[in-house]
Design a protein around this nucleic acid. Structure first.
Lengths: 153, 153
DNA sequence: CGCCGTTATTTCAAGCTTGAAATTTCTGAC
DNA sequence: GTCAGAAATTTCAAGCTTGAAATAACGGCG
């Protein structure tokens, strides 16, 4: 435990860095949202879910999905509902545990995501074009450290 | 313009860094949301709006507010509506331009935010306790560069 | 003055998100 | 085997968020 009577001199700077981090992230998200809407008529949450389903093509449970995306169970349910209604994702009951459900992209979902992903990567690349290889190294290092303890309470 | 035929070798790494950035930000937001809910019975968007109103105590228009927070006008209207209903914020019509509205914290809003802010800063400080002064310098530098061009389309 | 394009805000529908409660199923202790 | 507790998912209400359309007011140009 740190001494509560001794205020951390870095506290204000950490706050400022956090605000800046939030600003950059929000700006990038807004840009990507607009990009997905205009060029692919889809949304960020749908893209995120599809990306997770793509990464785990062999099947994911709803719980794993929400853990991967850091969103609530109810949220995952809602987005998957909409994807399923549009024929892009499909639920399958587990054979061994009747509580769990596996979600996966359909053929069409797969096809659509693969087109999306390339464009999305290109846009991210443009967005962060000003970051050099050294920047990326340093950023990764710092973010790894930042994410280590604290958030994952 | 970069040659579209020559794929950027850093593209994949930028994407990975972006995903990590998003992960750290989301985790921190989730943690702070929980913190505000449990300890202060409020939400992140309300806190963000109150913080903006605090920073600009002399008055902000709705447009400035949404620009500061990087959210839509409709969003700002909705959150301010709720704060106003709870007596924490107040709208005032401009005397010179009947279209514009100034928003400000009420006495109670001010008081409440000042209590919130200290705790919030402490929590952020804990959350990013693993970042040293050098880390903060480097991070700020990189984020400044990243935010420079691209997002602010 | 009167019109036109712009600006500030609100309204609205649809989708997103949370957190808590409800439902169903599983598991382990007995 | 039974039952209490844990786990996976869904449901639901309330709040958040967007983007587009509506409303109202400004400002300049003729």
């Amino acid at each position: 435990m740190t001494d509560p009577a001794k205020p951390d001199p870095l506290s204000k700077r950490r706050l400022k860095s956090w605000i800046r981090l939030l600003g950059v992230t929000r700006a990038a998200e807004n840009h990507l949202r607009e990009f997905l809407r205009v060029n692919h008529d889809t949304t960020l949450p749908r893209f995120d879910v599809m990306a997770a389903l793509w990464r785990r093509r062999d099947g994911v449970t709803m719980s794993e999905l929400s853990r991967m995306l850091l969103v609530s169970n109810g949220n995952a349910t809602a987005v998957v509902d909409r994807l399923e209604k549009d024929g892009l994702a499909k639920r399958t009951q587990s054979a061994t545990d009747r509580r769990t459900v596996y979600v996966a992209l359909t053929e069409e979902g797969l096809r659509q995501f693969e087109q999306l992903a390339t464009d999305h990567e290109g846009e991210v690349n443009k967005l962060f074009a000003s970051l050099t290889e050294d920047d990326l190294d340093a950023l990764t290092e710092i973010l790894k450290r930042a994410g280590q303890r604290g958030e994952t309470a």
